[in-house]
Design a protein around this nucleic acid. Structure first.
Lengths: 134, 134
DNA sequence: ATTAGTGCAAATCATTTGCAATTAG
DNA sequence: CTAATTGCAAATGATTTGCACTAAT
């Protein structure tokens, strides 16, 4: 195996790897915490030499989502979370803490739906709610 | 069978049936459109004798959700939608129009998940994406 | 009278945008 | 030089809140 490199990933996806974009992408690749834009700003601003504004975080996240580098995840009203896992997967939300966990598509039974034929389904997402212990 | 009465419903759920609350509840019972707070305000303000402010719409929606009279549905970043259908069901989002349709729980196969035993699942929601024709 | 509910306007929060300054090619 | 990117600050959109006013017990 070889390490996931943020800069390579951005180049492969056709996004110019500016320092800010690399650093945000690196952070998202390094965590499974599904951070919000503000959490990303806090984490990345401290640890890095480059300057980083809130506007750039938002602009970058939008760019990365559009390029398919990351995914936007909405688990609660009012704010978005971001996930560098762009493979087919679902989510588990701890209803006490709000923490979000990835659930691989393979560990759930495929959903088969008997819908009115006018519904043309492209895909679906499952969100589990509950408590994650420990 | 007997008609669904907004005022009775509110009383049954322990919510004082003020004119504003009754009217909002009636509207939500009458539609399957999953309206946003603003859409509710527009629809209800015109047709009704009582005055209705935006603040009251928001306050009422929160009250109704907490009382279990309605459900909040988040299908897109940035705003919530509301649904008087509080039975167990899922949603279909038309990705072109943003329209949201209810999908009864019975028409999809139950999701069985093989999760780490520390995930205590209370329930799950499925959101389908696609195109609804016509 | 007391308490709950409403409306208004101001406040707040997340996100977006206009624009001048900066940087990379 | 030219175009893309960034930061700042102002703007926007959704939602919440403080407070005076009204209605109901």
């Amino acid at each position: 195996m070889h390490e996931i490199n943020a800069e390579e990933l951005l180049l492969k996806k056709g996004v110019k790897p500016t320092p800010q974009r690399v650093v945000i992408t690196q952070y998202l690749l390094s965590t499974h915490s599904h951070p919000t834009a503000d959490e990303i700003l806090d984490e990345v601003k401290n640890a890095l030499p480059v300057s980083l504004s809130r506007a750039t975080v938002y602009n970058t996240l939008k760019t990365l989502v559009e390029a398919g580098v990351i995914q936007e995840v909405v688990t609660e009203p009012g704010r978005s979370r971001y996930d560098a896992n762009v493979s087919d997967h679902h989510h588990f939300v701890d209803t006490e803490t709000g923490a979000v966990f990835d659930i691989p598509a393979e560990v759930i039974t495929p959903v088969r739906a008997t819908l009115d034929e006018r519904f043309k389904v492209d895909g679906y997402k499952v969100v589990f709610f509950g408590r994650r212990q420990d």
